[in-house]
Amino acid sequence: MHEQRQIPVWFFIGGLLLIYGIIIIAAGLWGLAHPSDVLKRLRETDPNQSWFFYHPEIWWGFLLTALGSTYCLRFGPWRKGD
């Protein structure tokens, strides 16, 4: 009997990270124009930090997106013979 091929767990992880990455980047970009309470507090208590410290949503979101995309492409159900 033909055994159905299981989609690897890595694809589910990639998909979830990709979605989360996009949402978090969007939230970060929105935060540039509308600073959150967290950002305001950080700027008050530690005003001399770099852009990376104040806007982790954007670079962390890109990291999630990159990781998610890689996993989706590498382990997606469209790949044959893995």
Partner: peptide
Amino acid sequence: QYLGPGLLGL
């Protein structure tokens, strides 16, 4: 203290 909108959800 550190996680803004989106990251806090994560």
